[in-house]
Amino acid sequence: MSDTDSFIDEVTEEVRRDRLFVMLKRYGWIGGLAVVLIVGGAAFNEYNKSKELAASQKLGDEMIAALSSEDESARAAELSAISAETPGGAAVLAMLQAGALAEADNLDEAVARLQTVSLNAELPLVYRHIASFKALGLQQDSLSSADRRLQFEALAQPGAPLALLATEQMALLDIEDGDVNAAIDRLKTIVEDAGVTADLKERATQVIVALGGKLDEAVTSEG
């Protein structure tokens, strides 16, 4: 390489360094701002997590204190005085309030609390289905068999969180309507389901036997 070429390379490199220095001097604040934003964002997230945890602990303590009351009416009143800051916490609280109201023989208000949860589209499906299931259980004497069947059918759709429990309730409605064969068939689908719990399987099996039905030997041996 000639001295001229070497000199040109050195000048070019120097120019590059000068340009880089000017760029950093002119736009370096952007990098600094990015660092501040990243650190600030992480701190804000940690603050939010800490705030949510504190709120959850406070809600849990208040619910436990209210549930410790031995008087049904007092328990319902204390639970009704509690408020929750998150949708999930509010849903759990509403279901506890409904339970206390039902124990205090205030079924209409209990059902109303549960229905607000079941109709809240912002909540996960499992919350809404549990609330619907509990509400239907409280309406055995006030809702017709046909209306309860229609709502339990919606809860018993494949893949639904409470599908097997809703199917069990539909089998009981079959028995109530005098359709024993339909009840046995429904209960068999529960027993044969891979996701059935031991308690539900045993309960369904006992009802099948009580109704005069028979189970496959393979299913019986698995139990």
Results as ranks from 00 to 15, higher is better:
residue 195 G to Q: 12
residue 44 F to W: 15
residue 201 K to I: 00
residue 211 L to Y: 04
residue 25 K to T: 13
residue 223 G to F: 09
residue 95 M to I: 11
residue 28 G to Q: 08
residue 104 A to K: 04
residue 200 L to K: 04
residue 10 E to H: 06
residue 182 A to W: 02
residue 174 D to A: 13
residue 136 L to S: 07
residue 184 I to K: 07
residue 112 A to C: 01
residue 56 S to T: 11
residue 24 L to P: 00
residue 77 A to W: 00
residue 20 L to I: 10
residue 179 D to K: 13
residue 76 A to K: 05
residue 72 E to K: 08
residue 17 R to I: 05
residue 179 D to Q: 12
residue 82 I to F: 06
residue 58 K to G: 02
residue 80 S to L: 04
residue 29 W to E: 09
residue 171 A to F: 08
residue 63 M to N: 07
residue 175 I to L: 14
residue 162 L to Q: 11
residue 159 G to H: 10
residue 87 P to L: 08
residue 48 N to A: 12
residue 91 A to F: 04
residue 192 E to N: 13
residue 136 L to G: 06
residue 102 A to D: 05
residue 129 H to V: 01
residue 69 S to G: 01
residue 6 S to G: 00
residue 131 A to V: 04
residue 76 A to H: 10
residue 219 V to E: 02
residue 97 Q to N: 13
residue 12 T to F: 09
residue 10 E to F: 01
residue 1 M to D: 09
residue 78 E to C: 00
residue 94 A to Y: 01
residue 130 I to S: 11
residue 95 M to Q: 13
residue 2 S to L: 02
residue 207 V to H: 00
residue 157 Q to P: 05
residue 17 R to F: 04
residue 44 F to D: 06
residue 98 A to T: 05
residue 207 V to Q: 04
residue 77 A to Q: 13
residue 84 A to W: 11
residue 166 A to I: 11
residue 47 Y to P: 03
residue 169 Q to W: 02
residue 205 T to R: 12
residue 98 A to P: 06
residue 140 Q to A: 12
residue 13 E to H: 07
residue 114 L to W: 03
residue 177 D to V: 06
residue 114 L to F: 07
residue 36 V to G: 07
residue 191 V to S: 05
residue 28 G to T: 11
residue 133 F to M: 12
residue 209 V to H: 03
residue 43 A to L: 12
residue 169 Q to E: 15
residue 185 D to M: 03
residue 143 L to R: 07
residue 105 D to I: 05
residue 87 P to E: 10
residue 196 V to P: 09
residue 140 Q to E: 15
residue 10 E to I: 02
residue 150 L to F: 08
residue 146 A to M: 12
residue 116 T to M: 13
residue 123 L to T: 12
residue 88 G to P: 00
residue 68 S to P: 02
residue 79 L to P: 03
residue 66 A to N: 09
residue 46 E to T: 11
residue 57 Q to D: 14
residue 25 K to G: 15
residue 74 A to I: 15
residue 169 Q to S: 11
residue 206 Q to K: 12
residue 131 A to H: 03
residue 141 D to R: 10
residue 57 Q to V: 14
residue 151 Q to S: 10
residue 96 L to T: 01
residue 171 A to K: 03
residue 215 L to N: 03
residue 155 L to A: 12
residue 166 A to R: 07
residue 203 R to L: 11
residue 184 I to F: 07
residue 197 T to S: 15
residue 136 L to Y: 06
residue 121 A to E: 15
residue 74 A to Y: 02
residue 112 A to H: 07
residue 184 I to Y: 08
residue 139 Q to R: 05
residue 180 V to T: 15
residue 144 S to M: 08
